[in-house]
Design a protein around this nucleic acid. Sequence first.
RNA 1: GCACCGAUGGUCUAGUGGCUAUGACUUUAGCCUUCCAAGCUAAUAACUCGGGUUCAAAUCCCGAUCGGUGCACCA
Length: 586
Amino acid sequence: MADKYEQVLELAKRRGFLWNSFELYGGTAGFFDYGPLGAMLKRRVENIWRDIFVINEGYYEIEAPTIGIEDIFIASGHVGGFSDPLTECQKCHEDFRADHLVKDIIENPDTLSSEELTDIIGKNNVRCPECGGKLGNVYEFNLMFKTAIGPGGKRIGYLRPETAQGMFVDFPRLVKFYRDHLPFGATQIGKAYRNEISPRQGVIRLREFTQAEAEIFIDPRDKTHPKFKEVADLAMNLYSQNGQVSGETTKMSLGDAVKNGIIAHEFLAYCLAMTYQFLVRVGVSPEKLRFRQHMKDEMAHYAADCWDAEILSDRFGWVEVVGIADRTDFDLKAHAKQSEKELSVYVSYDTPRKVQKFVVKPDMGVLGPMFKGKAGKVANALKALRPEELSGDVIEVTVDGEKIKIDKKSVKFETVTEEIHGENIIPHVIEPSFGIDRITYSLLEHSYFEEETKEKADDEEEENEGKRIVLRLPPEVAPVQAAVLPLLSRDELRKPGNEIVGKLRKAGILVAFDDSGTIGRRYRRNDEIGTPYSITVDYRTLEDDTVTIRDRDTMKQVRAPVSDIEKNVYDLIYRGKSFDDAGKGI
RNA sequence: GCACCGAUGGUCUAGUGGCUAUGACUUUAGCCUUCCAAGCUAAUAACUCGGGUUCAAAUCCCGAUCGGUGCACCA
């Protein structure tokens, strides 16, 4: 029996959701095309993400290049850290992590170069742990695609392995755009690239994939969220660090999770809520969704807390689709160091603070002529002294190893009170990072149903069992939103059908017109691609200007007027209008 | 990357050295047809790619590609 992945992918290929890329030339692992329906579906998923993060939270979207220069990825750690030193056994051709093999011999093997690792393996006669064979030279396998910028190959570029760096690199501009106020956020939806060693699992692990990421910069001293109250009662499946030790998932409200210290703070919890609402809205089943906290040893050393949204898939088990991390100031600090620019925000205090400050004022009128070229250094040495060191009649400082005595008359000092209005702080970054392809696949799988239908053969008593494949996509994400079907393929029914198509299109609804074959077949075809509503034109339409609307999930029909059909259908799709209110039951 | 298994119209499939490569479903055109894939007529459409063995290869051998599984890697 085919498993669900196989069924979903078969349907996805056949009906134009997902295709293997480059199939004409035999295909290449790790790449997928979105067909006509898939591309529309994915776009709708992205637009719901925009609705939540950009429109409702105000985290504006930016668009940075998919190619990045080397500095960016040196700062981010991808040049050094996104690769593994591998060594291959010459006998059994098994690959091993070279740093893992020598970790009993050497203290910090991950700091060594490939050459050094090769050397150590040779000197200590490290053999293949599988067959005892000789190991080959150590080589670095970096998961980034490398390219050259401009002719000559002098400037190295990399295809970005994540969209996040774009927001970090634009940080100084973003601070100004948001008028020097925390918190603020920027988002990006776009392609990222990782040259996976061996991509499997179809659309779950791709070499080119789409991420939707938000980088939200917050004040490290205040990780509350103003809208947290709105989501505090939302209960979801939490698989915390303690839960993973005991193997238990707990359904808990976010308010309680923050109160009990399970989720580090409100802001992170609020991101979990947005994630939950997004995933459920696009069609992921809530009962097949959990949030798993990273274990301490799994979390990056700089991260304060990190949760993955995981979706249960029939074949792959729990699949990570979103990562939500408090990355603290790690990324901004790293880019500040690499670029030698200050990446901070000036934050003013509510009330200016008075600070007692000890100030030394050397009398340069005396010291200048006395020390000439050395005077500046002497003055700086004096300024660095503490009050007790200035108490004697003669003050002694050391400049360039030379002890210099200065009369106390040449140095004044006092304690002054200064008003400080604020300070420069490095914001902390909350990063929700979504794998759009995995989410799109997951919602297809969760929407996929095969139903047994009992049909009575015309004259016979016996019941034939048939199969109905239906994609129960939320109407908002369904690629084709309505089908217009003349009951019979006759001109007198086609014509009003086409008029309805025109009205729906003007209202921005993607509509398909289909008059081929029997009506039942056309309903089934639309069920299979998840079209939520089918509008059927029959002979009564010609009499009283009404049509039937069929609900995909229940196969129920109502009768509704043609006059406001576009508003009716629009409300069904976008406004949550209930189907029973769409017309008279039949 | 390694090992094992597999690959025939859009989908499922027959074919195990020898005629024009089976069949079903789908699709298209038409007929029929007043609401849930099944009526009639016709049409379109396939041996993953490259090399070898042979008079002759979809079939046997080698290699590649893709897919599946396990290992490794990855999150």
